[in-house]
Design a protein around this nucleic acid. Structure first.
Length: 970
RNA sequence: GCGGGUGUGGCGGAAUUGGUAGACGCGCUAGACUUAGGAUCUAGUGCCGCAAGGCGUGGGGGUUCGAGUCCCUUCACCCGCACCA
């Protein structure tokens, strides 16, 4: 058996590919294009782990396959290099994030290169490179200088809006304060900008951030745990800050509709649909009692009782998807965080409500989500008028209503909304059923079907009709209108951080002004310290020279969020060195958009939504030709790690074997005991109070063998956090650890890098093994148990080229029919499976093919040549070497793909299973073209069949050509 | 609470349109070759059963000549989330 010197082969061909620019993408080749992309990584300090190659290799296989098929392939790689970890590291060490990022990227690139991925490295992008983020800033300027024209349904330059203001003022637009053309002309620049801010696709608004006074900084959601800061455990409160937003809500409908045009996994589309959250219904005004009603003249029982700020709001606007149930609305609820609440509070309720609002502020969104069963709220003291019943209904405030959705207020219909129902039950509010169905003494009836009752003019209607009728009446009454509502909110685009793209914006007082294209890039200044300023501003704010832009102008000191750079990077790959434009027209026209995008579903509603937004804005402004960036999307599953947990007996202060912990771990509390099965309770009753305490620790997996036994002598000597600690082995002299499957991470000491695997088996084996693990979309723990099988397979392939004396020997004799059949069934299978990304079954098919050829002793050029091309996308190094052995000039990567010929697969006989009453009982070989009657007759004539049919009548016979024969007897 | 997903041998998994369940690989068993085997080759390997045969795709029910696949119901686990009016 000829061994493969894979280390030498892989190095040799990687060098060849580099030297000869084998993977260079050329727009002028005249071939059709194919763009294969994997989500670029954030280069963390941990380096690449075995999970990364899953998507990289899959995309690489498709890219190489398409190249063989004659496509001009764009398959680039880059780095999402701005981000929090580098900045946190900088705060701790003082090292410049740019330096640590560069180091991490170098490590990643080295690891990527040894995997033999067919990247065109000339096209590498790094989002933190000024040459790149110059164009991120440029695109931001385009967004800033645009507005969404609802008439043309696309973004347009802001000038087109200004021109309309000049001619007809604000006519036809919803603005805070209407104005005429003359008003506009008379406005100061600041006043004009204030109006434009209501239209720009990038605008400033005040919104709440997680503010940690003790740390003097704004925290990401990630950094807040149970209402306190992750590091230090300091209290976190809400603070309003001026921030940039992208008006993604204007694109809600197009982002929704666009999903119909792209080939993405249905669950992913569903997540985006839910996130956009389109619902149709009505927006309705409810009058607040005590306020003069302009309409039909309702009578109020009492005069206004508001104190302090004078009268409250005249109306409260609500959005409802169930206008048919207005007759059943018995109270209203407004969001505690909305401004409305303060205006509605009466003197006698002020104390209670403010106390409640304080309570809500202390609750993180996590809290509010976790216990849905806790119903809380407070009565504001005010009443509204139900517009259909003319009855007074109390206005409450409760945390289940969010200021950010709809209008921040709801009409509560407890009979037909489960949350309203729970609320009404808790606070003793009336529940009036208005749709027949369900049993509202037990629970609300939320279904959108039934007949309207207790509902005046809606009585007797079906829900669907009642909704329409109700909206018509609402519109006639002039108190509301039909409305489509989206859950989607505008995207926050500011971060009070150092390591991100600076905004190309300066402030004249409060007025933002865009910088000129010629001023770009606005580069990050050097800072003395990466530590927070204490004011909530980014560290840049402390660099006065930089902030001062001359003429009394001050630079924006926020930076852009992590997703800015990743919202357009696929476009830069098309033309990465262009100094004149973010992408050249001709290059963009050639590559268009990404044909296959592979990445994790955790980006479903973040990156993948923002990327679509940016593409659509650029499309509207005429900069790109496609309005969807990723035509086909595939989610890869997560490769988890197996951690090893070691337990410590805290009282004895020594580490112990797992079974010691297990047998002592009966420390349930009484609540748990009540829910335990009886057998467990018995066990518990016989148990004494726990006298032992344990803690646990992750041990590095490299010190633990396949039986979960720790090499404790070595571990306690070498692992820094274990040295000097006491331990006690069990009576077999072992310390056993507990294996736990969890996410691979450095802190859990369970990271497996591809490096060691490549060293032991080679990149080709690792590539194929990762594909062999299972469907690309499945998550699974990393397990090397089967890697030998793949390694053996490659060796078998290799040995087809060698004779018994381990000399290369390839025959020029014509291939037999059988050999061609083996080859062509493989071609058919591989081609189909790559197209549907079933790469695991590709590997199986290769194994079958090689096993067959091996038993046929086939070493014929006619077979081995196409086979080598077939294998090349999967195991590119060994394929190149084999190609050379075949006497062909490199590179195999540009060899045309073998053409499948079905003629070789034609069978002249087929083995039919014979089923009796649906169970397989026998087999029979019949000619391929046999007809039903003859086949059944032959089947019935078989002795083994007669055994089953004897003494019974044949009731039915099924013959499916090339499939089965089924005989029903009885 | 809402949304999405997954359940198939000892293990990873296969079965593309309702048509031979368990391909391929790991592991395991036996044998061959061998100084040796953690190399290689051959044979076997879903479960129960001596066999005939029976049972088998989380559980229960249904449609069908035929169900892993379709329908109803139920259980378990995983992932995501903004209580979304």
């Amino acid at each position: 058996m000829k061994e493969i010197n894979f280390a030498e082969i892989e190095k040799k061909w990687q060098q060849y590919w580099r030297d000869n620019q084998v993977y260079k993408a050329d727009e002028k080749s005249g071939k059709p294009k194919y763009y294969a992309l994997t989500m670029f990584p954030y280069p963390s300090g941990k380096g690449l782990h075995v999970g990364h190659p899953l998507s990289y290799v899959a995309a690489d296989i498709v890219a190489r396959f398409k190249k063989h098929q004659g496509f001009e392939v764009l398959h680039p790689m880059g780095f999402d290099a701005f981000g929090l970890p580098a900045e946190q590291y900088a705060i701790q060490t003082g090292k410049h994030p740019a330096d640590t990022t560069a180091e991490n990227i170098a490590t990643y690139k080295k690891q990527l290169e040894i995997l033999g991925l067919s990247y065109d490295w000339d096209r590498e992008v790094r989002t933190s490179d000024p040459e790149y983020y110059k164009w991120t800033q440029w695109i931001f300027l385009q967004i800033f200088n645009s507005w969404y024209n609802k008439e043309t349904d696309r973004a347009e330059p802001i000038e087109t809006l200004v021109n309309r203001f000049k001619v007809e003022g604000s006519k036809g637009f919803e603005v805070e304060n209407g104005f005429t053309a003359d008003d506009w002309a008379a406005f100061s620049e600041a006043e004009q900008e204030k109006v434009l801010q209501q239209f720009r696709l990038a605008y400033l608004a005040y919104s709440e951030v997680n503010w940690c006074e003790a740390l003097g900084t704004v925290l990401a959601n990630d950094e807040v745990i149970n209402g306190v800061s992750e590091r230090g455990g300091h209290p976190v409160t809400k603070k309003k800050m001026r921030q940039w937003f992208l008006r993604i809500t204007d694109y809600a409908e197009r982002l929704l509709q666009g999903l119909e045009t792209i080939d993405w996994p249905e669950p992913l589309k569903e997540m985006q649909r839910n996130w956009i959250g389109k619902s149709t219904g009505a927006q309705v005004e409810f009058k607040v009692r005590g306020v003069e009603f302009k309409g039909e003249g309702l009578k109020f029982k009492e005069p206004p009782s508001h104190a302090g700020e004078g009268l409250g709001p005249t109306t409260i606007e609500i959005f409802t998807t169930r206008p048919d149930t207005i007759f059943g609305s018995t109270f209203m609820v407004v969001a505690p965080e909305s401004d409305l609440v303060q205006q509605l509070i009466t003197d006698e309720q002020r104390g209670e409500v403010n106390q409640y609002i304080e309570y809500v502020k202390s609750r993180s969104e996590r809290d509010r989500m976790a216990d849905v069963k806790t119903v809380t709220g407070a009565f504001t003291g005010s009443y509204a008028i139900n517009p259909f019943t003319n009855e007074e209904i109390p206005i409450w405030t409760a945390e289940y209503v969010l200021a950010s959705y709809g209008t921040g207020a709801v009409m509560a219909v407890p009979a037909h909304d489960s949350r309203d129902y729970a609320f009404a039950k808790k606070f003793g509010l009336p529940i009036n059923q208005v749709v027949s169905g369900g049993d509202i003494s037990k629970e609300s009836y939320d279904a959108k079907e039934g007949t309207l009752i207790n509902s005046g003019f809606l009585n007797g209607m079906e829900v669907k009709d009642a909704i329409n009728e109700a909206i018509e009446v609402i519109e006639e009454m002039g108190i509301g209108k039909r409305k489509v509502n989206y859950r989607l909110r505008d995207a926050g685009f500011s971060r009070q951080r150092y390591w991100g793209e600076p905004f190309p914006i300066v402030f004249d007082g409060e007025t933002p002004k865009p910088l000129n294209e010629g001023d770009l890039p606005i580069t990050l200044p050097e800072v003395v310290s990466y530590k927070p300023t204490g004011t909530g501003e980014s560290p840049i704010a402390a660099v006065n020279d930089w902030v001062d832009a001359g003429n009394g102008l001050r630079r924006e000191t926020d930076t852009m969020p992590g997703y800015a750079g990743s919202s357009w990077y696929w476009l830069r790959y098309m033309d990465p060195h262009n100094k004149e434009a973010f992408v050249g027209k001709d290059k963009e026209a050639f590559w268009q958009n990404v044909d296959l995008y592979i990445g994790g579903s955790e980006h479903a509603v973040g990156h993948l939504l923002y990327a679509r937004l940016w593409q659509k804005v650029l499309f509207d402004l005429g900069y790109v030709g496609k309005d969807e960036p990723f035509q086909k999307m595939v989610n890869q599953g997560m490769i988890q790690g197996t951690s090893q947990i070691m337990y410590r007996d805290d009282l004895k202060n020594e580490f112990i074997s797992y079974e010691e912990y297990e047998k002592s771990n009966w420390t349930w509390n009484s609540d748990e005991v009540a829910n335990r099965p009886a057998s467990d309770k018995e066990q518990l009753e016989s148990f004494e109070e726990p006298t032992r305490k344990f803690s646990s620790i992750h041990v590095p997996i490299e010190y633990v063998n396949a039986n979960n036994e720790l090499d404790y002598k070595k571990a306690f000597e070498e692992v820094p956090y274990l040295t000097g600690h006491k331990y006690s082995a069990n009576d077999k002299g072992k310390i056993v650890c507990q294996p736990v499957v969890e996410k691979m991470s450095k802190s859990k000491h369970n990271v497996v890098t591809p490096d060691a695997m490549v060293e032991k088996y080679g990149a080709d084996t690792l590539r194929m093994y990762e594909m062999f693990l299972g469907p690309i979309t499945d998550s699974k723990p990393w397990n090397t148990a089967g890697i030998d099988g793949v390694f053996k397979f490659l060796r078998k392939f290799w040995n087809l080229f060698y004779n018994k004396q381990n000399e290369p020997e390839i025959s020029d004799a014509a291939a037999t029919k059988e050999e061609l059949k083996v080859l062509h069934s493989c071609i058919q299978k591989i081609e189909g499976d790559i197209e549907r990304l079933a790469l695991n079954t590709c590997v199986s098919s290769f194994m079958i093919c090689i096993n067959d050829l091996q038993s046929l002793n086939c070493n014929k050029r006619e077979i081995l040549e196409p086979l080598t091309v077939l294998l090349s996308p999967f195991a590119p190094h060994i394929a190149e070497e084999a190609w050379q052995l075949l006497g062909k000039a490199p590179s195999v990567t540009s060899a045309p793909y073998p053409v499948f010929n079905p003629a070789y697969l034609v069978e002249d006989a087929h083995v039919y299973p014979i089923m009796i009453n649906g169970k397989k009982r026998h087999e029979i070989t019949l000619p391929a073209g046999i007809g039903q009657d003859e086949a059944i007759a032959k089947a019935l004539a078989e002795e083994a069949v007669q055994k089953w049919t004897e003494g019974k009548s044949l009731r039915k016979q099924i013959f499916v050509p090339k499939k089965i024969i089924n005989l029903v007897v009885g």
